[in-house]
């Protein structure tokens, strides 16, 4: 899974690289456009377009029936019943293409989230680093484990141990731009965690967790912790990222869906897709 994640990360790193130094909204527009361009053909070829068109026509027909015979309560009720029925049929026709579309959409959302949910630390900013251990007894450094930071990062506090050392906290300060590795050492193991400092749009992975298919799929930003690492997770509290549209700060996921819908409607005709 780590290899697959590595390939997907690299593809998306390449995709977002032209947008790394400009307003993040452009990258979000691009990925929304890409999503639409990928989704529409998948939808088109995995769905029964003819059946969708027919069902929609039926719904429209019954809608018209309601308008024309609004004084005839029996006809109206019958039309509404039929509209409900064809809506259910419409949803049934949607299920199959959605199954095909879901996986790539989730991958795109996860990858976009890696770049937009959080932002890199700025020089001068601090963040809390947290590790959770399987066995607090297995620690180096006088029972607190040893965290080491490369030049460019500074560990500002001594470790704070919670629940007998099961969880350990530190505060780090970013000193200059860069892509760094924080290292945490137990008696027999050393684990690294990537820390990004700078202003650019880049892949941010706030936590690495112990492996497992689900964790590796949902947290693909960095290779998962190996089963014998002795750690549950290694986490950095990055600041949340912000995206602004005409000065309004909007959560990236909301903007992503709005933009994807807009592009979707614009491209329906060129792609000759019925939704």
């Amino acid at each position: 899974m780590n290899t697959i994640n590595y390939v997907i990360n690299s593809i998306f790193d390449l995709f977002f690289s032209p947008f790394s130094s400009i307003d993040p909204i452009y990258g979000l527009c691009a990925v929304s456009f890409l999503t639409t361009v990928i989704m529409l053909p998948i939808f088109k070829y995995t769905s029964n377009q003819e059946a969708i068109r027919r069902t929609k026509s039926r719904i429209m027909g019954h809608l018209l029936e309601v308008r024309l015979f609004k004084d005839d309560i029996r006809t109206v009720l019958s039309a509404q019943k039929n509209m409900l029925k064809y809506n259910m049929i419409y949803l049934k026709h949607m299920m199959k293409p959605l199954m095909f579309v879901m996986l790539p959409v989730v991958v795109i959302i996860i990858q976009t989230g890696l770049r937009y949910e959080y932002r890199p630390l700025h020089p001068g900013e601090t963040a809390i680093v947290k590790v959770k251990l399987d066995n607090p007894g297995n620690l180096a450094g006088g029972g607190s484990g040893v965290l080491t930071a490369p030049e460019g990062l500074k560990i500002e506090t001594p470790p704070l141990r919670v629940n007998g050392g099961e969880e350990i906290y530190w505060r780090i300060r970013a000193e200059k731009d860069g892509d760094y590795d924080l290292k945490f050492r137990t008696i027999d193991k050393e684990v690294s965690k990537r820390v990004v400092v700078g202003e650019k749009l880049t892949r941010i992975s706030p936590e690495v967790l112990k492996g497992g298919l689900v964790n590796s799929f949902l947290y693909p930003g960095e290779p998962s912790l190996s089963g014998d690492s002795g750690m549950e997770y290694f986490e950095i509290a990055y600041p949340y990222g912000t995206v602004a549209l005409f000065g309004w700060k909007i959560h990236w996921l909301v903007l992503f869906f709005i933009l994807s819908l807009v592009f979707g409607f614009l491209l329906l005709k060129p792609f000759r897709v019925s939704v």
Binding site: T157, P159, L160, V162, Y169
Partner: peptide, 22 residues
């Protein structure tokens, strides 16, 4: 508020904030 058993450091958690102070 959580303090380390030995070091002069405290973790303060309130609302969505988590602060580690010496």
């Amino acid at each position: 508020i959580t303090v380390d058993p030995e070091h002069p450091v405290a973790l303060i958690q309130v609302d969505d904030n988590e602060m580690l102070l010496k």
